[in-house]
Amino acid sequence: MALKEESCSKCFDGRQLVYSHDSETLKCNMRFAVYLPPAAESRKVPVLYYLSGLTCTEQNVITKAGAQRICAKHNIALVCPDTSPRGVNLEGEDDTWQFGTGAGYYLNATQEPWSKHYHMFDYVTKELPALVEKELPVTATKSIFGHSMGGHGALICALKCPGQYASVTAFAPICNPSVTPVASKALKGYLGDDKAAMEAYDATCLVGSYNGPMMDILIDQGTNDGFYKDKDLEPEAFVRAAAANPNISVVLRKHEGYDHGYYFISSFMEDHVDIHAAALNEDGSGAAN
């Protein structure tokens, strides 16, 4: 087995696991978490991918969001990758929380020295799903969601890989990273000053030209979110751009008083998982396709 089990805990009659593996894409050892619901003991179940935000690891969502109970109810697996390559020892990698370690932005870097390891887009859309489907009791049917940088990741993965995901939602996503203050600096570091290269990983720039299956997108945003107030997220820009595409429908819900953290995420996690469960299996039962 290509996976090394790092931990396993019983949770809502399923299993919360953490695995490590050697990634060919990132050229380093990586960890990811997976919750396997009770039904996975006897059959394959569909899988929901969650992409975390800046500074996070696979641990934040599995310890703070309360998603396991809902995934157990629907009999869907939850896979939570890390947010960047680890232990590659690049100069400048740990100088700031906004770039480098914990800040992979789910893109394929083209600039040295980042281009050797920072290929998180290929990792989360290709290598990790192939590994999970080979080694764990899951089907190829998948959905994706995420938070902040991970919300950005979920949106671009769905938009750049039409038909690969049954559904996509996001909590406080960075919707326009090629122009927003914090994210644009990171994108320039990974991709250089090429505007087109940055826009290729910008959901607001991508959504107008999306030509895949009909996509209904839920975005939840707290009004007391400091990153939202500082114009680092810009969900309204994404909504405006999506309005021109008949294959995209966006619902932006604003929640009074909520901030950017996991109290916010946990408050609306059930809504998101319910949406994905319905898309993964029409009856929400987690039946294998």
Results as ranks from 00 to 15, higher is better:
275 I>S: 09
162 P>N: 01
215 M>I: 05
89 N>L: 03
189 G>F: 02
267 S>K: 09
92 G>N: 14
132 V>K: 03
218 L>A: 10
270 E>S: 12
254 K>L: 04
245 N>G: 09
150 G>M: 01
99 F>S: 04
153 G>A: 02
288 A>R: 12
81 P>W: 05
46 P>M: 00
97 W>S: 10
179 V>L: 04
219 I>T: 14
132 V>G: 10
200 A>S: 13
74 H>G: 00
98 Q>I: 12
119 H>E: 10
289 N>E: 10
274 D>R: 11
204 T>H: 12
230 D>P: 04
90 L>T: 11
145 F>Y: 07
234 E>C: 13
53 G>V: 05
136 L>W: 04
285 S>E: 09
64 K>H: 10
158 A>E: 06
192 G>S: 06
249 S>D: 11
286 G>L: 02
129 P>W: 04
196 A>T: 08
227 F>H: 14
165 Y>P: 00
133 E>K: 09
201 Y>T: 12
242 A>L: 06
33 A>F: 00
127 E>Y: 06
90 L>S: 06
277 A>T: 14
55 T>G: 06
68 Q>M: 08
4 K>N: 10
173 P>R: 15
253 R>N: 12
49 Y>N: 04
75 N>E: 11
108 N>L: 08
172 A>E: 08
185 K>M: 07
7 S>Q: 13
24 E>I: 07
186 A>E: 08
241 A>R: 15
163 G>N: 06
4 K>G: 04
17 L>K: 14
275 I>C: 04
75 N>A: 09
22 D>E: 13
43 R>E: 12
273 V>G: 05
208 G>Q: 12
145 F>G: 00
